[in-house]
Design a protein around this nucleic acid. Structure first.
Length: 535
RNA sequence: UGGGCUGUCGCCAAGUGGUUAAGGCAUCGGACUUUGACUCCGACAUCGAUGGUUCGAAUCCAUCCAGCCCAGCCA
């Protein structure tokens, strides 16, 4: 369900009143990190809004700071966005606008709206005042236009070293909004840029560059997160003072935060350094690449994002909501029997070599498969207990009869233990007249469990992912104090032969999980089935 | 404490003066069940607080409380 949202309302109004006849949105990542679920909100919303109103969606890399950015992120980010299916109508780079940005800076200088400041960063910082103290004007604030022009040109020509001079917008040092206290709009950085190489040694700051980028591209609705609300006045100031033809409107929405999940770059880097996760694409992370690796269907992410809408409030959303969307997306997957932690069961009264039982692999009965059955099978270790603990126990126990799904009723008669006393085998008997499909109903079994034939079953590894952090983790604690030591568990398991031949890669491992088949030897859990079982 | 913003059920989130205050997740009952799944029934809030305006307020006003953001030559 798509929530109505205030931005959609604004766009509808702008279209109805004729302010715009075509809208343009954009996703403007800085190529300095990897995308996570939180970014999906911005990407999907910008994309969807544009598409829904017949508009245009741009992908623009906001590459205005060479010392923090790298070309490797550009490819990764594009891959993630493509995966989300949010194809962009145009791809741009802020660095392509550097020339026009300088022209606009010169325009500002000519209008007496910008000046070169010779003071070091610490002095500028001190003069800016604080939250309740107005700032003080720089002694260089009233330089002549000519001098500013000359100085700025010299900055551009590389006559100064890093930090020696900056270009500042002349706004209002007494503004209660810190962003209006003559923000720096150009700084000197003799740094190699991944696209413009060494063509520049001055780079524009966000507050100056971003509004220009939007205006240049004809962005009509510039969406960003709440922390930029304070920047809107300077955003509008730049568009106005630079006399941009196109006037974009910045609109802020709340960030999407996922409860108990990690998306911070710093934190992830720590985890990688500590060897907790392999990389940013670890399936336990909510990075887009991690979710992709885990096998989360893109449609589930879209539904999740749309179900949340575009609020202005900032809360913490539970990952359960995403999981629920994943389940419903995977609901029609073929069913297979996957036995985790196999425990051997010998059916002492079962005659012959075995047989093939034919059943559908899903509820539509479109996918039929043969399930081998014989006197030796495996069931999950967790499905057996020596003594039935209570009436709620709907699995196997000594003297208890259960249904083997798609096969027969069996009753556990005795157990075989090893030297350590661990149960290694169950001796059971079956009743031929309880065969699946015969509608036998003279007795009610104590539940239904699944199994895999011991001889024809296929050994595989089965990996389950759990949250990386313990519940209600206190982020102020050291990392290893809040890590879930069992966030990734790999089990030996057995699957029925059809699990390797049925169309995949998604299956519902009956009574367990929705799983993805990685290859003929490995399966992993995408999301657990819901369960009302409580012990 | 200067400025900006937010506050509706455990978690998200509709609602913009007249509704029995949507929906989803979670939870608790129950039905069904060859998956403790699915599905289906049922339960589950007076809207941060306090005053005020109004015939009538979650929706308007006032005050207060709580939380978030802002003092990078980061974005």
């Amino acid at each position: 369900m798509e929530h109505s949202n205030f931005i959609r309302t604004i766009i509808e109004e702008d279209l109805n009143t004729g302010k715009h006849d075509h809208i343009v949105t954009r996703f403007p990542p800085e190529p300095n990190g990897f995308l996570h679920l939180g970014h999906a909100r911005s990407i999907i919303m910008n994309y969807t809004l544009a598409k829904d109103f017949g508009g245009t969606f741009h992908l623009r890399f906001d590459d205005t700071n060479p010392v923090k950015e790298d070309a490797t992120f550009i490819e990764a980010i594009q891959k993630d966005i493509e995966w989300l299916g949010c194809s962009w109508d145009a791809l741009y780079f802020a660095s392509d606008y550097f020339e026009i940005m300088v022209e606009k800076a010169i325009l500002l200088i000519q209008k007496g709206k910008a000046y070169v400041d010779d003071q070091p960063a610490e002095v500028i910082k001190a003069q800016r005042g604080d939250l309740k103290t107005p700032g003080q004007n720089s002694p260089f604030r009233e330089r002549s236009v000519e001098e500013n022009l000359t100085l700025f040109q010299a900055m551009r020509d590389g006559k100064y070293s890093d930090g020696e001079k900056v270009l500042r917008a002349k706004v209002d040092m007494a503004s209660p909004n810190m962003n209006m206290r003559d923000p720096v709009i150009y700084r000197i950085q003799h740094a190699h840029h991944h696209r413009t190489k060494d063509a520049w040694c001055i780079y524009p700051m966000y507050d100056f560059a971003h509004p220009l980028e939007d205006a240049i591209e004809g962005i009509t609705h510039s969406l960003c997160t709440l922390e930029f609300e304070d920047h809107r006045p300077i955003y509008d100031w730049v568009v106005r003072e630079c006399e941009m033809e196109s006037v974009p409107r910045q609109i802020e929405f709340g960030k999407l935060k996922i409860a108990n999940e990690i998306s911070g770059k710093r934190f992830i880097n720590t985890l990688v350094a500590d060897g907790v996760v392999d990389d940013y694409a670890d399936p336990r992370l909510v990075t887009l690449s991690g979710l992709r690796k885990k096998g989360v269907p893109v449609a589930a992410i879209h539904r999740f994002i749309h179900s949340l809408g575009l609020p202005k409030s900032e809360g913490e959303t539970s990952l359960q909501m995403l999981e629920e969307e994943i389940r419903s997306e995977l609901a029609s997957s073929p069913r297979i029997h996957l036995v985790k932690d196999p425990l051997l069961v010998t059916i002492t009264n079962y005659p012959g070599e075995g047989e093939m039982l034919t059943h559908a692999a899903d509820q539509d009965e479109t996918l039929m498969r043969d399930i081998p059955f014989s006197s030796q099978i495996y069931i999950e270790k967790d499905d057996f207990v020596v003594e039935k603990p209570n009436k709620k126990w709907k699995r196997l126990a000594l003297g208890i009869e259960v249904r083997l799904m798609h096969a027969y009723f069996i009753q556990a008669e005795s157990v075989v233990t090893d030297e350590a006393g661990d149960i290694v085998e169950i001796k059971a008997t079956y009743d031929v007249q309880t065969k699946s499909g015969t509608d036998f109903n003279a007795r009610k079994p104590n539940g239904t469990i699944h199994f895999v034939d011991a001889k024809q079953g296929v050994p595989v590894t089965y990996t389950e992912y759990e949250p990386l952090l313990i519940e209600n983790a206190d982020r102020s604690q050291p990392v290893d104090a809040i890590l879930n030591p069992e966030s990734m568990k790999t089990y030996s398991a057995m699957v029925e032969p059809a699990a390797l031949t049925l169309p995949g890669p998604y299956f519902q491992a009956i009574r367990s999980s929705y799983v993805k088949r990685d290859d003929a030897h490995a399966f992993h859990r995408v999301v657990a089935l819901r369960s009302s079982f409580k012990k």
